[in-house]
Simulated scan of single mutants.
Amino acid sequence: MKARAFAYARPRTLGEAHAAYAGAQGDASYISGGQSLVPALAMRLQAPQVLIDLAGIEALRGVWLDGGVLRIGALTRHAEALTDPLICTHAPLLAAAAPFVAHPAIRNRGTLGGSVALADPASEFPAMMLAMDAEMEISAPEGTRRVPAGEYFQDLYQTAIEPGEILVALHVPAVGPRHCWAFDELARRRGDYAMVGGGILAECDGGIIRAIRIALFSVGPTPVRARGAEQALAGRAPDAEAIAAAQRALDTDIDPLDDEEVPAAMRRHLARVLLGRLLRQLEIAR
């Protein structure tokens, strides 16, 4: 199939983008990298009257460190998470997750902001926002606001972004010398959507986990914090006993849906296996 005919706008500022959306009376879609929207247009799952291209807005670009918080512009491409020195140094979970995202052609075009705005529950970057305790900067015609990741992801493909609003940047607390991290996912083939995946960011001291955030994806309609597993690990070394306790606690943290390809029971089992792998990576890294 081919996309239906649409008008095209390429604003240079956020104000122009909001004006274009208002001029279309809400019958418009924003596009950045286009790796999710273009297929949806081709299959006519979406058919906006106006396509608003955000690629020319400089306010959505750039990566810089400001007072211990890394600001990542929404137009930062997936591939840049692999190479940008600030991301690799201060937000290493993004760098660890990036190689698992689809394939190089998609990583070269897709944007971090596009992934987080879409909030696909099987995607890597939204879950890493939760693991890193990031805040999303959102622009509306009346101004901007920041929304913590824990409040941003609301339901399947639903976020705190209201119609017409634009995700401007991701604000990530920079890791410190006591932080350690791990990322992994289980998929049938490299580049496929993961059957289950996750990332861990922990603060360790003398081999003991003082604080930990575990975020899983492909286990529910949104990225999921494994809070029970976190509690089972706090104040302990990630040894075999602690890992087993965290795996047991994980059963109450996730409630995956059944589907034909991966039944819920299988996804639970894979989540426990994955958590063990992540924690063993953490033990090596500490």
Rank of each mutant, 00 (worst) to 15 (best):
A134G: 03
I166H: 01
A149S: 12
I166K: 04
G206A: 12
F217D: 06
G199C: 00
A182E: 10
A234Y: 00
R146K: 13
V196P: 01
G198Q: 03
P173A: 02
T144I: 02
P223K: 04
A211C: 05
A140R: 09
A229C: 01
V224R: 10
A242H: 10
A215Q: 03
T252H: 06
A169E: 05
Q247P: 01
D155E: 13
E230I: 01
G197Q: 05
Q231R: 04
V175S: 02
A174Q: 08
A234V: 06
A149R: 03
P148D: 08
G197C: 10
F217W: 04
R190W: 14
R188N: 11
R190H: 15
L216C: 03
P173W: 07
R190P: 09
A140C: 06
R188Q: 14
P148F: 11
Q154T: 15
A215K: 03
P238M: 08
D155A: 15
H179R: 07
E162M: 13
R213S: 12
V196G: 03
P177T: 13
D155C: 08
A245S: 06
Y152V: 12
V168G: 04
D258K: 03
L201R: 10
E135I: 00
D258R: 05
G191C: 11
G220V: 07
G198S: 07
G228P: 00
E162L: 14
Q247D: 05
A226C: 09
P223S: 09
A242C: 12
A182G: 13
A160D: 15
L167M: 07
A244G: 11
R225A: 06
R236L: 11
V172G: 01
P256D: 09
G164I: 08
G235I: 09
C180H: 13
V147T: 14
A174C: 12
Y152I: 13
F183W: 15
A194K: 05
A187S: 15
E135P: 00
A182T: 10
A246C: 06
D184V: 09
I166M: 03
E203D: 14
G143M: 04
T252I: 02
P238K: 08
R248M: 00
E162I: 05
A245N: 01
E151R: 13
R188K: 14
I161G: 10
A182V: 10
A169S: 13
V147E: 13
E230F: 04
L257C: 14
I243P: 08
T159R: 09
E241A: 15
L216P: 01
